[in-house]
């Protein structure tokens, strides 16, 4: 079972690199924020799979929860800043 989760984790890492294209070249700041939010979602699953592979999932599940929380608050804060007229980017 460990090999199966390792393959899934590697697949998610490859997907993160594809999304990174949108972060680097995406036109405008909004595309970048959307892509960063997508990367955070994938990272949450990658952390859990790392916990399964290292056999310490009771530790990694806390980190994963905090990561989801901070990803949500970060996206809301960026949206709030851009909504009330940040500079024209």
């Amino acid at each position: 079972m460990n090999t199966f989760f390792l393959v899934i984790g590697i697949g998610l890492c490859v997907l993160v690199f594809f999304v990174l294209y949108r972060v680097v070249f995406g036109p405008g700041v909004f595309n970048r924020i959307a892509a960063i939010s997508a990367i955070g979602t994938k990272t949450l699953i990658i952390i859990l799979i790392m916990g399964i592979i290292y056999n310490r999932i009771d530790m990694f599940v806390d980190i994963s929860m905090v990561y989801a929380l901070l990803n949500f608050i970060g996206t809301l804060a960026a949206a709030k800043y851009l909504e009330i007229g940040g500079e024209k980017l």
Binding site: D58, M59, D62, I63, L69, L70, I73, L76, A77
Partner: peptide
């Protein structure tokens, strides 16, 4: 488990920041 005083304080602060924004 992972965590402790500093990390818990940061999460508490983040909840107030969420309320603030």
């Amino acid at each position: 488990s992972p965590g402790g005083g500093f990390q818990g304080g940061v999460i508490l602060g983040a909840s107030i920041v969420l309320l603030l924004i």
